[in-house]
Design a protein around this nucleic acid. Structure first.
Lengths: 155, 155
DNA sequence: ATATAGTGGTTGCAAGTTGAAACCTCAAGC
DNA sequence: GCTTGAGGTTTCAACTTGCAACCACTATAT
């Protein structure tokens, strides 16, 4: 985890989300949640991380409103962990991460999992940032605009 | 940093990129690099992290081919750090992170920086994942397809 | 020539974090 | 009432982090 600053309000629009997510494990947990995993044991088995770490990460995700606990759907006396709306909002981020991985971490001929459209079975398109009028935007085409008014947020 | 697995080949398409990035600081460094920062001192001053940590992160980013060192452009005897193609490939990820932050970490009326199209000055569109035929895809509309052939990559 | 200051780091060390394993708790099955 | 399994918590050694001090090199001032 990154150095904790006194007030979250002093963190910029990139650092604040990073702080909420917590660490890499959390992101992998969220990915597994997108894949339908819900139970403590499922996450633990699939990710192979220590139980204390998993417990801490789940607590953190719940505390930040990214996941929520609900009573188990199958009548067992345990709880399950599900993504909140905020958690589901991480979908583009995970896709971006996966696509970056596909682009730069696998040899052209190396077999790897591919994200496909469930309906057509075809690979999805690359994520593209577009302007209001539809142009594809690269890093050079964008600027961060400071708040127009009053209260201070760093950068 | 996350537990290091013996072979990077045993990591899935999400974990492998995470491992390469290293930690949150690295992502903030990359963001600053997109904003035009190039020098050790600039990063250190802007992010406020310890010099040894910055040095370690930059080393890691260079080692993973995300940034590269070049001789200083201004004739000074130092080097500068610039994004490689692979590093520039992180743009969508940073945008996803920022947009998630905009959506869930600021009160509707809270002032915050906004990513705008340089040309028009208007805010950019939300990132959307689309199928080959242009439908917007959500988490439920996608599946990860295992490698069609031979070599094993986890998940 | 000598001191001073700025840049770009490295080194040492105290404090905090992580993770493997052991342990605990509760409910269900036998 | 003994065992099994799920879902954790506790313990503790190993590792990582971050502050501060230091070092090397260059440029500028005295």
């Amino acid at each position: 985890m990154v150095k904790r600053v006194s007030h979250k309000d002093s963190m910029c629009g990139v650092a604040r989300p990073l702080d909420a997510i917590g660490d890499w494990w959390s992101l992998l947990i969220v990915r597994d949640a997108f894949d339908g995993l819900r139970r403590f044991g499922e996450f633990q088995k699939n990710l192979g991380l220590a139980k204390n770490v998993l417990a801490a990460r789940l607590r953190n995700l719940v505390a930040h409103g990214i996941m929520d606990t609900v009573p188990a759907s199958d009548g067992s006396p345990y709880q399950e962990y599900v993504l909140t709306e905020k958690g589901r909002g991480l979908f583009p981020l995970l896709v971006a991460l996966r696509q970056w991985g596909e682009d730069f971490f696998f040899e052209p001929d190396e077999a790897h999992v591919l994200l496909v459209d469930r309906k057509s079975g075809l690979p999805v398109r690359k994520l593209e940032l577009r302007s209001q009028d539809g142009r594809v935007l690269g890093p050079e085409d964008t600027v961060v605009r400071p708040p127009t008014s009053s209260t201070h947020a760093w950068r």
